[in-house]
Structure formats: structure tokens, C-alpha cells
Design a protein around this nucleic acid. Sequence first.
DNA 1: GATCTATTTCGATATACTTCTAATTAGATT
DNA 2: AATCTAATTAGAAGTATATCGAAATAGATC
Lengths: 191, 191
Amino acid sequence: MTQKELDILLQFFKTLADENRLKIIGLLSHREHSVGELAALLDLKEPTVSHHLARLKTLGLVDVRADGNNRFYRLDRAALGRLNQEIFSTERLTSWVDDIDVDAWDRKVLSDYIHDGKLKQIPTKEKKLIVILRWLITRFEPGRRYTERDVNDIIEGVYDDYAMLRRELVDFGFLARDSGGGGYWIPEDSV
Amino acid sequence: MTQKELDILLQFFKTLADENRLKIIGLLSHREHSVGELAALLDLKEPTVSHHLARLKTLGLVDVRADGNNRFYRLDRAALGRLNQEIFSTERLTSWVDDIDVDAWDRKVLSDYIHDGKLKQIPTKEKKLIVILRWLITRFEPGRRYTERDVNDIIEGVYDDYAMLRRELVDFGFLARDSGGGGYWIPEDSV
DNA sequence: GATCTATTTCGATATACTTCTAATTAGATT
DNA sequence: AATCTAATTAGAAGTATATCGAAATAGATC
């Protein structure tokens, strides 16, 4: 769903989220009314009713018909039904947020822990640690072999305790290690 | 529709009339999320998200599942569909306002033109005049005969120009007059 | 048990919106 | 043309509520 569609949806709910506007819709569902009539029925001043009607009109929910000085407003039922269908279709509901960046969480964590390209400290929470490790692993090329020294040097560029981070990378499967001294590499099924 | 039902409807729209709550629903439509995740995704602080979730929960739109310190919220799709059906059924739309007092218009006119039981002035608008006449005619008993003097006295109690009002009462059929001098009375089919 | 983490509650602030009065516009009536 | 009526527009005041920081709560971890 695009931001524009979300705005439309939002305007719809905002417009209907007022007791007097709901009552106006109810009154107009019976028959058309002038502004003065509505004001009297709802015990509001004309300008207030005028304001509410303007909002309903913006949404296309009501029509106006001028008759002398009076302006008779009536409900556009078709528009109401149309909005209903559009808004509450299942597809729409489940697609409300395609445009939200789901990596925002990752970025938040990164911005919290990384300043000027350096890791400030190692997060204790596993969920956050994984975000950091995922960021760190991008400095290694898939398919290439690294000596322990290589790995330490790369990590040290962003954090002093390279041994700790190297261990975490291995523990969480971001790096594989050959116990025979064959060095480190990114496993095929790396996260 | 009762006031209570209108309130429910109103709460529904008010709850959905917020951009971030719509986004939360969208996010939860994919999968459950913790408060912290939602806060990061929406770029809001936890208390704010907590507040939004509480409102959604009041409406029954979301469920909570506790897991350690985390609380995972998820969408109750059934509730959403249920509300949709209830809210947008045609019967409901057309019955929104049965409880609105349609005599309020009359009362408005009366309060505008009558102070302390006295008629301030005669409205020029026919619609309003009729309201006044309907009020005035209640001072006469159905089935009883009145002389012109009786009529004048009764009217003069509320307005000086009794001749004018008497004429209007007759013109609009609130009073019948016997051309032979037999006086005035309320006609059977009086409005 | 003390500490840490995620969430909620509380209190304050800032913003959006409803509602009103006053002034303006447009149409009808004299 | 002048007046009157209905409605809208403009501006102001009050109310509701979204948002945040600080404090409190509850669960997990050490």
C-alpha cells in the first residue's frame, strides 16, 4: 500500500471519527436537510455544521443542492458503499504496510551501537548482537578463505576486542572454521 | 440506533483515525511484533506504541502474548471482520439516528422567539411562523367555542399585536372561523 | 537477592480539531 | 437599490489526544 492510499484511508477514518458527523450521516440517510435544519437538530451553530459538511463533502460522502438561500445536503450512498468495499477488502488490510521499511529495526540498532564506522560496544541482547554480526559479516567476501590473522585485522578495524567478536561470528554461524587450521570462510547457508 | 451503539461506532473510527495505529495494524497483519520492534519500525518511543496498542486492545483488534519480558502483539482478524460487517451493514447506516429528537428544530425556534412566555416578534419565515403558531394553539382547547374577544385576550397575553397573530392562526388553518359570527374553534383536522 | 531488560503508567507538553462569534458572501424579497 | 436570510469563511478559544521523559512494574539473568 502506498503512502497515498494510507492517507486516503486515514482521511476516511478521521472524517467519520466525530459524533456529530456520524449523526449528520444518519440524518441525511433519511432525507436531505439544509444547514440550518441540521444545526437545530444537532443543537450546534450553523458554522459548525458547515464545517462538518465540508469535511464530509471532501470525502465525497455528501452532495449539495442549492434552493434559494438554502443549501440542501444529501447522502451519496453509492460513495459510502464504494469506500466500504475499498477500505475493508482483505487484500487492502493485509497490504497496509508494504511500504514500511522492515529493516528500520536493524538500522536503529546499528545507529545505536555504531559511531563513525566503529562499534561502540557489543550488545548483550542476542537479537541486537545478530544485527551487529550481520553488519560485520559484510566485510568478508563469500567464497574466500581467511586466516585467523586476516579475520582479526578486519574486525579490529571496527572494535578492539576482536577475539570476542570473532568467537560470536562463529558461534552464530556467520563464519565457519576449519579445525585443522584451514582458516575461516562464510558458509554456504549463511544467514 | 441507541446512543451506546453510536458510541461503539465512534470509538471504532476514533481508534482507526491515527496514522501510526493504521501502520501498526498493517505490521501486525504480517506477523506478531513486540512493543520494542514496533517502536523501532515506526520511529516512536515505547510509551507511545504502548498507548496505541492499548487503544487497539480496548477495541479487541489485537491480542497479547507474553514471552519473557517481551509482549508480542498480534492482530485479531476475526474481530476486524466482525466489526466491518456490523458497522457497514445498510440497516445500521440508515438507523444511525433514530434516537435524535426531531422536535429539536421546533425547540430551537421557540427559544429564539420566546422569552419568559412572551413572543418577542413574529418570524417572517413561514417555516418558523408555523412553529410559533403550533405553540400558540396549545392555549386553546379543542372542541370549545371562542368569541373574537376571547381569542384576542388569549393572544394578547403573549404578544401585543393580537390581530396579526389571530389572522395567521386562521390563515394557516390552526383556527376555524364562523363567518356568521359564531366565533372561533380548533378544526377537527388541525395540524 | 541484585541487576538488567521490556513494558507500562504517570505527568507534562505540543499539536490537531471542534466549536463558537464576528464578518463576509450570495441569494431572495421588498 | 436596500434589506433580509442562509450559508460560508476567518479568527479565537477550549478540548482532546499524540507524544515524550521519568518513574514504576514485572520478568529474566547473574
